[in-house]
Design a protein around this nucleic acid. Structure first.
Lengths: 158, 158
DNA sequence: CAAAATTCATTCGTATACAAATGATATCTG
DNA sequence: CAGATATCATTTGTATACGAATGAATTTTG
């Protein structure tokens, strides 16, 4: 009588009637990090399809400089969420393109001050409408209300 | 009587009472791409603080292989959203670590079949609980309900 | 079946992204 | 003021990420 001892795959919970709760399995597809990476990839692809000759970080740095005016290199990096090593590369490439210039700060010889050029200003002005379209296309699968919600929640975890 | 001709900054809309709608300005901080990039950065930082010796893409590839079983290199890449060049690097590094092996497919000589090793399986099993904590911490600023909403909306645009 | 098209993997080049180390300059503290 | 700290920028090394070109193998087509 009775039943045999517990065999592999069985446990006391099962005996007690707490059936097979799929052990809170881990599905990669449902993890925020995985979805975040894919959403970001899709956005970058949309960006590249509309603005082929500037990357999102380059545009971000230029747009921030356009909006905010002169800043130091590291400060600009902070504003657009790039560390010192990353912002340097971005600025170098924008400098090569003639969109900005860099000069030593007289009052603090460690600093570099970054200026946007007229060409840089003009580029931002011309690209803003495309950038708006990129935002639109990225959010196209969502209703206006959903898009607002997404932006709000995403901002909270950013 | 009458009023002077339109001067700079004025327009017919203003005359009609549609006041100064700030020209739908473009604020970088409100663009989905910018927020997406920052949220992704934060997640990667959290991941690195908990799982120092494996990157999110490496863990994704290994977890997918664990879950799905043997696949070709490119197919694995598709499953974890990495192009051929990217997945190759990831697999090379996991191979070096002994988490997987790669061998030529006999029936299709173009293909490489990727096998997870016992060490790889073990690593996934041990890391899953940490991975869950990473998800939790990334979503910590949100309520449970908000987290579900975010995941759902993000999946739609991913 | 033979030519054309496709698929799989590799390689190269460019661009983020970040840790860590370094040198120059500023600021703080005792 | 002098030594300790901190900040700014640079450099190096590693790891995604992707476009484009390439070669080998397979599949499709005419």
């Amino acid at each position: 009588m009775g039943r045999p001892a517990l065999s592999a795959g069985e446990n006391i919970l099962k005996l007690a009637g707490v059936e097979n709760e799929p052990p809170a399995e881990y599905r990669l597809q449902d993890q925020i990090g995985f979805v975040l990476r894919k959403a970001h990839q899709r956005h970058v692809a949309i960006f590249a399809s509309r603005i082929g000759d500037l990357t999102p970080p380059q545009f971000a740095a230029l747009a921030m400089l356009h909006e905010h005016g002169d800043t130091s290199q590291n400060q600009l990096g902070q504003m657009v969420a790039m560390d010192a090593a990353t912002i340097k590369g971005v600025i170098d490439r924008l400098k090569t393109r003639g969109f900005l210039t860099v000069e030593k700060d007289a009052s603090d010889k460690r600093r570099l001050t970054v200026h946007i050029t007229p060409e840089g200003d003009q580029a931002v002005r011309e690209l803003v409408s495309l950038a708006k379209e990129i935002t639109q296309e990225t959010l196209a699968p969502l209703s206006t209300r959903e898009a607002e919600t997404l932006l709000r929640l995403l901002s909270k975890i950013a």
